[in-house]
């Protein structure tokens, strides 16, 4: 019995520490809530085939993990020197482009895996590839920027989800809408949706260019 009491004391200590850092607790709760809500919203909106929403949810989780480390590893002193030489704009543009290729490759890979192991119901392959590309731009923009913000906190991974998931929802919902059109055999009007998605990407890019220097200062 006596060997167990230190464990009990340690558990109480953990609880006390957790309670002292209330924001971490609130963050964890919001994390759970946000993730479930985003999943539910995307899956519920989809009436025809769950393939569509499933694909984009898988894509989201894969890319969040891939982009999280964007700002985490400062690397060796050589890298720091390179960062000091370049302007904030150059840094963010380089990171966004790198992440764009990373995300695009990952999305293509998951598309291939989906068609290999599940099914490939896509009728308009070109339209879907364009959708994936526009989606990669959006994902890489939002997630790179969010990773720059969450890097300022101690809880990087949790903040990627709390900040990133809700911000990326408008993009995912437009992507799901566009994928719906790529799934149908009769090609409907989709230029409008592409224009909206491109416009969202463009505006986000502009705002990120303006805002990033304030994050890069220190």
């Amino acid at each position: 019995m006596s060997s167990l009491s230190p464990i009990w004391e340690l558990i109480k200590l953990e609880l006390k520490l957790e309670w002292r850092m209330k924001y971490a607790l609130a963050g964890a709760i919001l994390y759970v809530f946000t993730t479930i809500f985003v999943l539910y919203t995307t899956l519920q909106n989809e009436q025809t085939i769950p393939w569509n929403a499933l694909f984009w949810m898988v894509a989201l989780f894969i890319t969040v993990n891939a982009v999280t480390k964007s700002f985490a590893s400062s690397g060796s002193s050589d890298n720091l020197y390179l960062y000091q030489l370049s302007s904030a704009h150059q840094v963010i543009i380089a990171k966004i482009i790198y992440n764009l290729f990373l995300v695009f490759a990952l999305l293509l890979l998951s598309y291939a895996a989906f068609s290999l192991f599940i099914v490939n119901p896509i009728q308009h392959n070109n339209l879907f590839l364009l959708t994936i590309f526009l989606g990669s731009i959006g994902f890489s923009l939002v997630l790179t920027f969010v990773s720059a913000i969450s890097n300022k906190t101690k809880n990087n991974a949790v903040f990627m989800a709390i900040l990133g998931f809700p911000l990326i929802i408008p993009i995912i919902l437009s992507l799901v809408k566009l994928t719906e059109k790529a799934l149908e055999s009769s090609s409907k009007e989709y230029l409008n949706d592409i224009a909206i998605l491109a416009a969202i990407d463009f505006i986000l890019f502009g705002v990120i260019l303006i805002l990033f220097p304030f994050l890069w200062k220190d």
């Binding site: 609130a26 963050g27 809500f37 919203t41 906190t153 809700p166």
Partner: peptide
Amino acid sequence: IALLIYFAYFILRSA
């Protein structure tokens, strides 16, 4: 979701 975005604002501040 808009509300979640702004809840996150306050959690971010406290972190």
